[in-house]
Design a protein around this nucleic acid. Sequence first.
DNA 1: CTGAAAGCGCTTACAG
DNA 2: CTGAAAGCGCTTACAG
Lengths: 324, 324
Amino acid sequence: MKPTIRDVARVAGVSTTTVSRVLNNRGYISKETRANVYTAINNLNYLPNDLARSLFHKKTNTIGLLVPNTSDAFFGELTFEIQSFCASLDYKIILCNTLNHIDKESKYLEILSGSQVDGLIMSTSNSNILNNYEQNLPIVTIDHYISKKIPLVSSDHYSGSLQAVELLLSKGCQHIIYVSTFPAFEQSSTLKRNAYEDGMKRQEKRSIIYEYSGYEEKYKVICKLFDENTEVDGIFCSDDITATAVITEAKKRGISIPNHLKVIGYNGTGVSQILCPELTTVQQPINLIAKTAVKSLLEVIDGEINTNPTKFYLPMKIMEGKTT
Amino acid sequence: MKPTIRDVARVAGVSTTTVSRVLNNRGYISKETRANVYTAINNLNYLPNDLARSLFHKKTNTIGLLVPNTSDAFFGELTFEIQSFCASLDYKIILCNTLNHIDKESKYLEILSGSQVDGLIMSTSNSNILNNYEQNLPIVTIDHYISKKIPLVSSDHYSGSLQAVELLLSKGCQHIIYVSTFPAFEQSSTLKRNAYEDGMKRQEKRSIIYEYSGYEEKYKVICKLFDENTEVDGIFCSDDITATAVITEAKKRGISIPNHLKVIGYNGTGVSQILCPELTTVQQPINLIAKTAVKSLLEVIDGEINTNPTKFYLPMKIMEGKTT
DNA sequence: CTGAAAGCGCTTACAG
DNA sequence: CTGAAAGCGCTTACAG
């Protein structure tokens, strides 16, 4: 059996109160007593039970993190950054992969509430379906706006996408197409699309948009795009993986990049930069997103009066490679 | 304040004992009482506090997961698979990214012990440095052998690597080189390397090995490899990212793949298959690794007598693309 | 079928 | 400087 504070008290010949005070550096303790307690702790290999502490304090120093899938490069990195930053602030992370399934999300929410997490960071689609249990739980969302009361942390997708379109335009592209996943799960999709359309409109160019939902459909849609737009000379993609697929198809068709066609991706995760360093992409500030989300969640948890704006739109940066 | 079992008892006009029995479906309860309790629960929006339950049962249904970094595609996927499978078995995951730093590892181990996790899944380098606290904690490691008592789950790296070498040989390669990260952190590196050497020896071919440790060094080493071995016609890489770098450099030098040079990577994660579908690679059965690790951990946690072998070497499969 | 009591491992007023 | 007591929110023998 694991030793408890009682065992320590017995061995050190003091009360549990005293042991607790030594442990928490609280009140006055004679040097001798303190020393005795510490030797007992060491001899017994005693480690305080955080469950009991949390129960008393009504604070677990644990945060629930909901993401769709850590296999996805963006979320894998985001999870890393959030967990690492939390650890530096003495918070633990309970990780939940929701796959954007509404039933999983609400089950996880219930589990996390039951686990008495101090707060929630959510970057998952159906965030608006909060159980009653979460009414008073501090929450911050990433990329998914829920309500005025819940802080939102997000890349400035509109501005980032506008930069992409403007880069293509400035390089002389005349026929720029936007290819995207179907904007069902991601609120950011709408922003990207709007930015593309606005950017085109300003230059009095016609918007051409292709959207797909599944894997096979993606390939078909890309082929269709090339078939139907032989004059295309610029493609802005909603993510790097799509951009890679576009580039592959273009090469297959003998279209030279960046001479005849310029391509820009989106996200700029570490993996895609390593695997496709040549890709020009709009990079999300993942580390900054993580830190901002954690900080503003902790502000709510610590009950700091929050008159700050509760939306953060973080700057995106174009990483220019060789595809533009 | 969150309602407690006491509030429910008060509202339902029964004792907390009775509420608890309703909650846990234990003992006999009259239909009427049960109904009353449920309406009280619903009206109050009551959710049991798992902290208190865990404290009593000495069981948290929580597992600590230590990986180097979820940004890495392999660990991002592994984390997803482990967490998802655990969730289906009603276990939570506390995630820790160790970056293979020994000090972080041992700090996380202490935190997890304090959190009373029921067990640990470790896939991190210094696993042999267990604190005293973990002496009796059920542990399973992935890819890092610690001792006979601790189950190890691993891909069959030796056999997988041998397959790779044999594939290159069977395709007629005469000068096969092995490029790898410096085998400091990964025990698997040694196995891969041994398999390469054995495979070469069997065909009476000379082994040529290049190893690097950092990012810049990788690039230099790859260049050196080509400079020093103009006759190279096969390269087996310790991971897909290295393989991609090799391919990029080969193309730059005008070496045609797979005609003049065949390249095989290692890991076969989802991202690299999406971003570089043409790469031939030795794929790790990530889903199987996750399930095996979780299952054998739960066996230990559930105290099932374990006369089973405590090492699992899971089969790897070559995914043949267009680089061989 | 139901409740009072003790206890899981801690912490903190309170009293001395 | 130190300890006895109550309590965090549960559960489970035990008794009726």
